[in-house]
């Protein structure tokens, strides 16, 4: 638990979260959400929650990105806001 690294990763997580909800192209939203999940996974690995970090790396950055992109592929790619 090193708080300096934690601050840096936390700021990056917040910046990516703001980017995720403000970008208009939904395909890049899907990819950026994978990056968000991976940053979150690093944050948990720093705090010693190795099982949770492993789960998030496989679930959040892996499968849920695929699901999001599959759903965007089947619906529309653009968003108005």
């Amino acid at each position: 638990m090193i708080w300096q690294i934690d601050v840096i990763i936390l700021v990056m997580v917040i910046i990516i979260a703001i980017g995720v909800i403000s970008i208009k192209n939904l395909l890049s939203v899907g990819i950026l959400f994978g990056a968000y999940s991976f940053m979150m996974c690093l944050l948990w690995a720093i705090m010693g929650a190795v099982d949770v970090a492993f789960t998030e790396a496989s679930v959040g950055a892996g499968v849920s990105t695929v699901f999001l992109i599959a759903a965007i592929f089947r619906t529309s790619r653009g968003s108005k806001d």
Binding site: V20, I21, M40, W44, M47, A49, L68, S79, D81
Partner: peptide, 27 residues
């Protein structure tokens, strides 16, 4: 946000924030 996919992603961000809260309680 008006787009439904954006709403779903907002729900997921909320969920991960809650998970982060629990993990920081236990550290």
């Amino acid at each position: 946000k008006q787009n439904l996919i954006k709403k779903i992603i907002g729900m997921n961000i909320f969920q991960t924030a809650i998970i982060l809260f629990y993990i920081s309680i236990g550290s």
